[in-house]
Design a protein around this nucleic acid. Structure first.
Lengths: 187, 187
DNA sequence: ATAATTATTTGACATTTATTAAGTCGGGCA
DNA sequence: TGCCCGACTTAATAAATGTCAAATAATTAT
């Protein structure tokens, strides 16, 4: 938990009150490989900070799973629309490795935003950061040919390709496992 | 400008100081059809609020333009990564119709975030809102077949299809004008 | 109104990727 | 050891979309 508090403090100094409050309400949790952090249909009402591990975010489309993204050490894990709008999630979040998390509830977070105005500064900066990353992904996903999208991932997040099974990478790239296999063999 | 201030106030009440400051620094501007709000290569250092009109955001890819999104009345207009990270933009923003805007500079915005903590609340809420919308777009863009992506746009933003020339819609959907034309004729 | 320009549609063919099916590889375990 | 299972690869064919070219329709300027 110290890590997380230090990180938040580096964005904007935390008042003693906020620091104490955070220390009291931040919870910890470890989930095993294949366990779910969120199941489609439920409202994402916790915001998680990943200490260690790897998660995938996916949804069902015509009975098959479509991988929307991966999250790892240092990332915040939520289902964006579900958490921000507090509506049922269309996507699920599942651990691909044993994962260590810290988290707070949506309610506690809103309470902090009201009670400790400086916390909005931190929330804003983090939201801007993840929003920027999401735009980068949108840019990458928009590349027309599959081998270009793979190349972009290879260039920018080679670690993911190592840690994530090919089937999920293919799903994320919007191609079949077979096409991914052919792209790899051509390089 | 009243509109914009009322809108901000509805998210979180503005202190008198903030309201006065805003009144002083918000600028207005009208740009004509085909004029640019931002050119690729430059840093996006203004954040705009669209009073009336329509803009497109696009970038160059192998000598051809790729449309990344459209923005209209009530939207905030920036190039996300360029503005948040204050780095040169890969995309340009151009008016598709005569457009009336209000805006403030990045510097003024940062000043307000420091000087008027409550403004972070508003900034955070708006960032969350646009982030959610961006995720929806990502979801839509990820649909495999072109006719599904078109259908999604038709369902959720039929007005765009009316106001935006087909070539830009096709570019946004990641297909050729010819394919879009065929999709339309099949419906 | 008319010509000139631009936008959209249509057709024939090429390329990319999906689909289906079969084969290979490597590790866990009876 | 050897068999079984899951993960990955390879091949043949089909479907979706792109490319190029031409025709038609709509818009703009004179």
């Amino acid at each position: 938990m110290e890590n997380l508090i230090l990180y938040l403090n580096s964005i904007h100094p935390l008042s003693d009150g906020l620091r104490n409050y955070l220390t009291q309400i931040i919870q910890a949790k470890t989930i095993k490989k294949k366990d779910y952090l969120l199941r489609a249909g439920r409202i994402c009402d916790q915001i998680y900070f990943i200490e260690k591990g790897l998660l995938r975010c996916f949804y069902l489309k015509n009975l098959t799973e479509v991988c929307s993204w991966f999250m790892m050490e240092g990332d915040v894990a939520i289902s964006i629309e579900s958490f921000f709008l507090q509506k049922p999630s269309y996507e699920s979040i599942q651990a691909l490795e044993e994962t260590v998390l810290h988290y707070v509830s949506y309610k506690d977070l809103q309470y902090m935003y009201r009670q400790f105005p400086e916390f909005n500064f931190i929330g804003r900066v983090l939201t801007e950061k993840y929003y920027s990353q999401s735009e980068q992904r949108l840019y990458a996903i928009r590349m027309q040919r599959a081998d270009e999208r793979y190349g972009y991932l290879m260039q920018n997040l080679p670690e993911l390709i190592q840690r994530v099974p090919s089937s999920y990478i293919a799903s994320y790239l919007g191609i079949t496992l077979e096409t991914l296999s052919r792209i790899k063999s051509k390089r």
